[in-house]
Amino acid sequence: VPDTLKDMRLYGALLNAYVGAKIRDKAETLMEQMRNKGYCITPLPYNVMMTLYMKLDELDEVEELVSEMKQKKISLDSYSYNIWLSARGSQGSPESMEQVFREMDLDPRIIPNWTTFSTMASMYAKLGQLEKAEQCLRNLETRITNRDRMPYHYLLSLYGSLGNRGEVYRVWNIYKSVFPNIPNWGYHSVISSLVRSGDIEGAEKLYEEWLPVKSSFDPKIGNL
């Protein structure tokens, strides 16, 4: 492995560590060093820094990094677009979020994934645009591939947030048909969703269903 590539990996690992610990000053200093060494030639370090700024609610900094990537002709990847979508949605502007999605949709290298639609659904729900949120969830469902459990948990949680218990049950039944063995966190998702949508009786029934099949006792489920 060339020394340059080793250095890029080491710097990248250190940047991840600083961002994970939310040490902003050290992360920004290291990012500047990476720029000076010519290591910022892929979306990865930008995505890591955008993640930090999202954690710190520094949404303008996300926009600055996207602008820098475009100026330097560094193509955004799916992760870049998804963070940018989240930043725009967090600003309270569905129109500006939709502008990013249109740009993403027109990018021939990018296919919006289920995370894209879960991000948009969550933002629409927070902004009270429930019909658009549900349309995003329908799009999310068409993007589920292979044997990935995570999208089902997001669907359950988001439909619960929208108060749509019918869809919670529909997704739950599909989830159980695809995965015969449901882990504790699957039950946690559906039970908390039913509680949020006001179906306490249904939540209690699923709690009773979970008790004999649980992999281990999870007090978080009992406390819902």
Rank of each mutant, 00 (worst) to 15 (best):
C136S: 07
Y187W: 05
D57I: 01
V213H: 07
G92P: 09
D25H: 12
N36Q: 15
D218R: 05
Y53N: 00
S96M: 05
P108R: 13
P112F: 04
K37T: 11
Y154N: 05
N113G: 15
E95G: 08
D199T: 02
A133M: 07
L155S: 02
C40A: 12
Q135V: 00
V66E: 01
C40I: 03
Q99L: 14
L85T: 01
G12C: 01
K205E: 14
A13H: 05
K126A: 00
D199V: 01
R24T: 01
M123R: 07
S177Y: 09
N181M: 11
L52E: 01
D77V: 04
E58V: 06
S90M: 15
Y11I: 07
E58I: 03
I200R: 09
M123I: 04
M150T: 07
Y81C: 02
V171N: 09
S118R: 00
C136L: 00
G166F: 14
V1K: 14
G12L: 06
N181P: 07
S216M: 14
K220W: 03
Q99G: 14
I221Y: 08
E209I: 05
E208P: 02
E134K: 00
A121H: 10
Q99K: 13
G202R: 00
M69N: 02
C136F: 02
S96N: 12
R165F: 06
L106A: 15
W185L: 09
N36P: 02
V48T: 12
G128T: 06
S192C: 03
D25F: 14
G186E: 02
L156A: 09
M49D: 04
I23P: 01
S197D: 09
N164A: 04
S122V: 00
L158N: 01
D218K: 08
V48L: 11
N146H: 13
Y79W: 11
K37R: 08
V62E: 04
Y79I: 11
N47R: 12
E28D: 13
M31D: 05
H153I: 04
E201A: 12
M150R: 15
S93I: 03
L106E: 15
N223C: 13
Y169R: 05
N181W: 06
S177W: 01
L106R: 15
R9T: 11
D77H: 10
A21C: 13
T115L: 03
D25S: 12
T145G: 03
S75M: 15
A17E: 15
